[in-house]
Write a protein that binds this DNA or RNA. Sequence first.
DNA 1: AATTCTGTTGCGGGTTCCCGCAACTGGACT
DNA 2: AGTCCAGTTGCGGGAACCCGCAACAGAATT
Lengths: 242, 242
Amino acid sequence: MKVLVVEDDQYHARYLLDVLADALPEVSEIVHAADGAAGEAEAEAMCATAVVMDLQMEKRNGIEAARAIWARRPATRILFWSNYSDEAYLRGISRIVPEDSAYGYVLKTASRERLKLALRAVLVEGQIMVDREIHRLQRRTASPRHALDDSEYAVLVDLALGLQDKQIAIRQSLSLRTVQNRLLSLYEKLGVEADPDDPADVTTPRNKRVWALSRAFVTGTLNVATVQSAERDYQRRGRTRR
Amino acid sequence: MKVLVVEDDQYHARYLLDVLADALPEVSEIVHAADGAAGEAEAEAMCATAVVMDLQMEKRNGIEAARAIWARRPATRILFWSNYSDEAYLRGISRIVPEDSAYGYVLKTASRERLKLALRAVLVEGQIMVDREIHRLQRRTASPRHALDDSEYAVLVDLALGLQDKQIAIRQSLSLRTVQNRLLSLYEKLGVEADPDDPADVTTPRNKRVWALSRAFVTGTLNVATVQSAERDYQRRGRTRR
DNA sequence: AATTCTGTTGCGGGTTCCCGCAACTGGACT
DNA sequence: AGTCCAGTTGCGGGAACCCGCAACAGAATT
């Protein structure tokens, strides 16, 4: 069995290689790639069936790399290993994971034992394994209170690009007023609303649009990697076409 | 000599303690704190004269912790050790470093040798030492092209809070129109401007306000920690007073 | 079939935003 | 003094934004 490790932090990579050798004696070959692009190329070159993938990397983040790998070989087993229990990352992953393929998500704060367990469960046994911490986040995301449904999320991303309501409406094939309704529920769910007890908030209310974006970043609903991807996507799709 | 290490990533902390013991044999006591708040308390308790500080930590970030420590003991020598060459962090640091106190900034990507060198230079010799990578950023920040002048930065932070022009004007003691001028230069420096070749950008231009905020996050001019601090500050100052 | 609910859409108005134009200030250089 | 220049401020208008109100459709419930 051949395992590919994609991780740009040298200390984490060393630790990971160590645990990997320890936990999975049946591994015949371990390759280490130091960024997403290299990981993609290496996965193709070595025909990796199992990958351990960091999410936050300089050149090309783990989600984009995983999507590319899965596009070629949907059966590849990928264990994501990350610092952050970031909603934006989670949303990104659940969006790209193919049907019937094994994957996992372990936080870097997990113990060595739990990491070993996850490595075996996902890479060898082909199970799905998600860190309990993450799973809690997934619950919360699915709960009605602060949940962002997919269409709301799409509007949020367009908002982050700075698009105005009309353009969002066109891109999402909705009417202007509907987009504005989505924005209203976004504001509510992100906790963007004037405090009735604060006179300043009432007389000159805050700009909800930027406030919402700000809160989306702070709460981890949105992150920089997501926005960058969206921007690239917009440059390609939104402008050359149409 | 007593050294305090404030670092919440266990692997990095272990590595750091190892290098520290190796590089500085004259150290009599090494204490490790796992987050900013604990670091602050520990610095006070052990009368630390030298600190190695991570920037990005869960509970309380390194900048706030450093400010608290320096407020009590301005002579404390602090070496910041961080993953990111983030403009927002750099700006935060240069804002709080006292006159005549030693500090340093080393990236986690630096070699073991360079880290040892920095440890000795800052903690023992009391020099100022900034990673070349960071220094380049500082240059760029100081260069006229993309530089954000302090007052512009203040306006950017207020914008991130969602304040409208009028309120920013009040907080900064400026006229409305001047704030708008600051915003104009912000837009320019953050690269927020319609592309004349793109018909979509011309007919329905993007919302500059949110676009600028978005770019500020992507370029690292602003980060989540900064916005959170600003929000706390606003809740306290902007509303109870006035 | 009647009804409630949820999501979508149009309309209209009050507000903020973006920014061109013009005037004024204070400092720097000739 | 004269002149230039960068920074600040007022004015005004067109566009976008926020959102209450109301109508309508389809799905679910009774």
